[in-house]
Design a protein around this nucleic acid. Structure first.
Length: 616
DNA sequence: GCAAGGTC
């Protein structure tokens, strides 16, 4: 009988896959040197030519192998920062991963086949090559296969086991290019600018880091700050009509909205008054609905967590991680906003019927209210949307955990419910030569809104009856004056949305980048009650962005374009259009030129920092 | 004393 070693990216997947393949008959569960990892032994019948095999299923815990510079470049004074662009690098297993690596090597020793079950995304493909290398160290002749799966539903996993594929070397190469570039560019610029600015007041003890994600994130905050600061309010004028009927004051808005030309508005307003009467042009009733939300992704969880729960994105992710490891919710790092057709969503809804808070609603879904969730447009092919997998009694969780869990559950139940339905009434007026309108809403069926308490959709004041063709004398018509308002400082949900839209970081790391630029004292977070808080840059943060902008680069270091370019090059590696070395070499040359330009004009950056950091 | 990416 052949021995097959299966390796997943994380312990939870190993456990789930072992459960499905073994049919519940696990011969042996062995502890390893790592407290999270277990080895599961069982038999499984693979398709020919393998047939019935003795299987060991285990996992790593994310990356096992790290990259850094060779020893002679590790200390900051050992070399010029610019030397890091082509300094020797090395891979190694960090002390906390020693047992993980040893487990793979020793389990692979007597296996004929290594079957890789890492997540089916780019990082997973690379982690798969780490596992392969570790296994081949002890068993160079082991045959390597790769499972293709996108969720851990039983039938899906069994199908994956029956259809072994191969590792995608291009995707792994793309990740390796990314690792090398981030290391070289990040370390070179970080050392250089830290040492350059050390003599500036207040920065003597501080690391001033550069990272391809940190800087664009900082750039978003500075950008908004400048827009707020440079904002010049502009006056505008409008016309508003009010008519009192059945004791209701109905306000009508001007079809033109508002104009910046006072005289023009004045003339139009006078014409209205001269006309004396207004005429009802149309009264239109239209069914309308408010759509239930899409299945929950990580980015959405972080944005809404900040908006509705008043928790920072990082805290939300830490809590979600904990709820996941305790088996209460599904994997919290996902880009997918579509549920697989095969998933038994009703079973998951059923588990929530015992809740005092939303149990009745869940019961209602079980008794006919259920409706298949909408599909979004994202699918990472690795994880389903975030959803509750078990019911948890509220007294088992602390206050913040309870709120995150509750959000995940309510969101899920909302997805499985129906859109809210209502009816709008739109009344259009002609008054002089101008058009006016008003709209009323009656909510007819609340549906998902009953459980998704975060969305508001309320009936506006009911409109009195107006009849098409009717002519009346408006109670009041006024010319109003307003002023344009500056935008607010950047909030956390807005920042996450910007990062997401511009490809800065991944769902798993966006919160870390935000935390990092706070730790580096580039930005401050002002807590703002329930909406989560807003960011403004420090003097140092502004100085860095402005200093580099003053030097002047074709592509700004604090804008997302450089990162986007790197992402596009990675895609080209995946498509086979470029090789890893093409990408690494061309990017290194590009950054080396920028680095040289920066060092030639270091006085510009330094002067900028001095200007912002020296008290007047 | 550097990065960003996994995961715990």
């Amino acid at each position: 009988m052949k021995k097959v070693l299966c390796v997943a990216e994380k312990p939870s997947i190993a456990k789930a896959v072992a459960g499905h393949l073994s049919g519940g008959v696990i011969r042996n569960t062995r502890n390893t040197g790592n407290k999270y990892i277990k080895n599961y032994d069982f038999n499984y019948r693979f398709p020919p030519p393998w047939g019935e095999c003795s299987v060991t299923m285990t996992s790593v815990v994310g990356h096992t192998v790290s990259w850094d510079f060779a020893d002679e470049f590790r200390r900051w004074k050992d070399c010029q920062p610019s030397a890091l662009f082509d300094a020797a690098t090395k891979q190694f297993v960090s002390p906390e991963n020693k047992e993980v690596a040893a487990n793979i090597s020793s389990e692979a020793r007597n296996a004929q086949i290594l079957y890789i079950w890492t997540d089916c995304d780019r990082e997973g493909e690379y982690i798969g090559t780490e596992v392969m290398d570790l296994a081949m160290k002890s068993n160079p002749r082991v045959e390597v296969k790769r499972a293709k799966f996108s969720n851990i539903e039983r039938a899906h996993i069994l199908h994956a086991a029956q259809h072994p594929g191969v590792l995608d070397e291009r995707q792994a190469a793309a990740v390796r290019a990314r690792i090398e570039l981030d290391l070289r560019i990040g370390a070179a610029f970080t050392r250089w600018q830290t040492m350059l600015l050390q003599t500036v007041r207040g920065l003597d003890e501080q690391v001033v880091s550069y990272g391809s994600c940190q800087f664009p994130t900082l750039g978003f905050v500075v950008d908004r700050y400048k827009r707020v600061k440079n904002f010049v309010p502009e006056p505008f004028w409008s016309i508003r009509v009010i008519h009192k009927r059945d004791d209701i004051n109905v306000g009508f808005s001007w079809d033109r909205g508002s104009l910046f030309d006072r005289m023009a508005v004045m003339v139009m307003y006078e014409k209205c008054l001269a006309a004396k009467v207004a005429k009802v042009v149309s009264v239109v009733k239209k069914p309308t609905s408010k759509w239930k939300p899409l299945p929950l992704t990580t980015v959405e969880l972080q944005k809404q967590g900040s908006r509705f729960l008043g928790l920072s994105s990082q805290l939300v992710m830490n809590i979600a991680e904990k709820l996941y490891t305790q088996g209460f919710i599904s994997y919290p790092r996902t880009e997918t906003d579509q549920f697989d057709r095969g998933m038994d969503l009703r079973a998951l809804v059923g588990k929530q019927t015992q809740s005092h808070a939303w149990g009745q609603f869940a019961q209602g879904l079980m008794e006919g209210g259920f409706s298949q969730p909408k599909n979004g447009t994202h699918n990472d092919k690795a994880h389903p949307p975030i959803h509750p997998v078990a019911y948890v009694a509220p007294d088992k969780l602390n206050a913040d955990e309870k709120r995150v869990y509750e959000f995940v559950v309510r969101r899920f139940l909302a997805c499985c419910s129906k859109d809210a339905r209502g009816e709008t009434t739109t009344i259009k007026l002609q008054y002089g030569e101008e058009g006016f309108h008003t709209t009323g809403l009656v909510v007819l069926e609340r549906n998902y809104l009953e459980v998704y308490v975060y969305d508001k959709w309320t009936s506006s004041q009911e409109l009195p009856v107006f009849t098409p063709g009717e002519i009346f004398n408006p109670t009041e018509a006024t010319m109003t004056e307003g002023k344009t308002c500056p935008p607010g400082f950047l909030t956390e949900p807005e920042l996450i949305a910007l990062m997401d839209a511009n490809g800065i970081g991944t769902d798993a790391t966006m919160a870390e980048h935000i935390a990092k630029i706070i730790e580096r004292k580039y930005v401050f977070a002002r807590p703002m009650g329930r909406s989560g808080g807003e960011f403004s840059p420090s003097n140092l943060g502004i100085a860095l962005v402005e200093g580099y902008d003053n030097i002047g680069f074709d592509m700004s270091l604090s804008k997302p374009f450089l990162r986007k370019e790197m992402e596009e090059k990675m895609k080209k590696i995946c498509e086979g259009v470029m090789t890893r070395l093409d990408v690494v070499n061309s990017s290194i040359e590009q950054y080396r030129e920028m680095f040289m330009k920066a060092s030639q004009h270091s006085d510009v950056l330094k002067a900028c920092a001095q200007r912002y950091l020296t008290p007047p």
